[in-house]
Design a protein around this nucleic acid. Structure first.
Lengths: 179, 179
DNA sequence: AGAGCCATGTAAGAGGTTACATGATTAG
DNA sequence: CTAATCATGTAACCTCTTACATGGCTCT
């Protein structure tokens, strides 16, 4: 899903619309977006068709003479609404930060800088809740009657998750201070 | 892949072999393994056939009267060799820690406790290398001539990765100390 | 002269999810 | 009487990856 919303975000930035090849440039590995999301041409065109079917973008055909005709895509009102909704919603899991949250942040900063700090705040709340839940799972695990090896292992698993979540929270705080 | 190696690991622990349903119990969400890897029956049986074709397990049929006959699987010498190889190899990326590394650790601790600390040491080296690479990318990024917004964003991305990697390294150190 | 850019896609396949089918036995 | 347990799988359906086809134009 992050790829499709990234496409919506790119279309929100490109005024008269954009065609697939235009969009593909933004997913090159040396571009900031491409450093996060990898998207091969095949999948890009596939997503564009899906978004069209969903009514989130609309296409107009431009003849090109020899070359295949360009499909010029524009963000539809429904697509804009979906993009807004998505930009405001934090991700639920820590592991989704590296992909989906970064894409949200990328577009929030460009499209509505004032909403970026809102997003960051919501994300901090969500991760803080997750961390609290991990802490209580740890407490519960310590009191559970099972094999010692199993318990020790499960506690280690929870500790890794807590450590990653804590690191992400610290990063978000720095982000907020920096912006 | 972690799922298939988890199956090999389970078979290494079960002496006369095990059939699909037996193995499935270990992937229930309340089991330590199931808390890490989710594996629905459909995929489990699929993997067993694949492992059989690859020559890493061998099956013997046990008739059951009314019920479908049991396929009792045993680890083959090739399968054992593959398991050993996999258990010794650290994962390359930080994001693979949460799944693949934890599964390696789970089985390393059970099958050869002395090799678990070897695995941890290798993993620390790998992550330390990754962290150094991130640092140099940060330095390179700071000197690069591009849009200010893009540069700031890319630096933030690298900082998140570095923070996650650093947290993982600290967790590994604790693990090593604890074991 | 050869490489790479333009601009779209298709085709093949790997891998995963979800749901369902079977049908007797046992536990609540 | 209902639900879960046993034990295996199939079927439909997504998603993603990789590779390729087209064919003129521009740059080195």
């Amino acid at each position: 899903m992050p790829a499709e919303h990234a496409i919506l975000g790119l279309l929100a930035e490109s005024d008269p619309g954009a065609h697939g090849y235009d969009l593909a440039r933004h997913f090159a590995p040396e571009e900031p977006l491409g450093a996060i999301v990898r998207l091969e041409p095949g999948m890009l065109y596939h997503h564009l068709k899906k978004l069209d079917k969903a009514g989130w973008v609309s296409a107009t055909v431009e003849q090109q003479g020899v070359r295949p005709p360009r499909q010029v895509y524009q963000l539809s009102p429904d697509g804009r609404a979906e993009l807004e909704r998505w930009l405001g919603a934090p991700v639920e899991r820590t592991r989704e930060l590296r992909l989906e949250f970064l894409v949200k942040l990328f577009f929030a900063q460009r499209l509505q800088p004032e909403r970026a700090s809102e997003l960051i705040a919501h994300q901090r709340e969500t991760l803080a809740r997750n961390l609290a839940s991990l802490r209580s799972q740890q407490a519960e695990m310590a009191s559970k009657g099972r094999d010692d090896r199993d318990r020790a292992f499960s506690i280690n698993v929870l500790e890794l998750r807590a450590a990653q979540t804590t690191a992400a929270l610290a990063w978000l705080e720095q982000l907020d201070a920096g912006a």
